[in-house]
């Protein structure tokens, strides 16, 4: 049986778990608290695949239209 790895699918952009300091920086840059970040479920297949835990923030690097490369962040929730 084949194992499905969602991270390799072309619809799925790269997800990277942020270090705690990076999260602090991020929150400071945008002057926001954690609860103002977009969310991603801990049960999300990609979150599971990269082994991230609730409370952590993932950095998502979207490639392609129209900026070429854009970065967004999501807070992992239960």
């Amino acid at each position: 049986m084949k194992k499905i790895d969602p991270t390799h699918h072309e619809l799925v952009p790269e997800h990277v778990v942020l270090e705690e300091e990076e999260v602090e920086d991020l929150l400071q840059i945008y002057n926001i608290t954690r609860d103002k970040l977009p969310l991603i479920k801990a049960a999300d297949p990609v979150v599971k695949a990269i082994g991230a835990r609730p409370g952590q923030v993932v950095k998502i690097i979207r490639r392609g239209s129209p900026a070429g490369e854009a970065v967004t962040y999501r807070l992992i929730i239960k």
Binding site: P6, H9, L11, P13, V46, R62
Partner: peptide, 16 residues
């Protein structure tokens, strides 16, 4: 798509 590939893929799928 959301179920199998996650929320970011779902976003891309909606756009597409």
């Amino acid at each position: 798509i959301h179920k199998v590939l996650g929320i970011e893929a779902a976003r891309n799928a909606i756009i597409k």
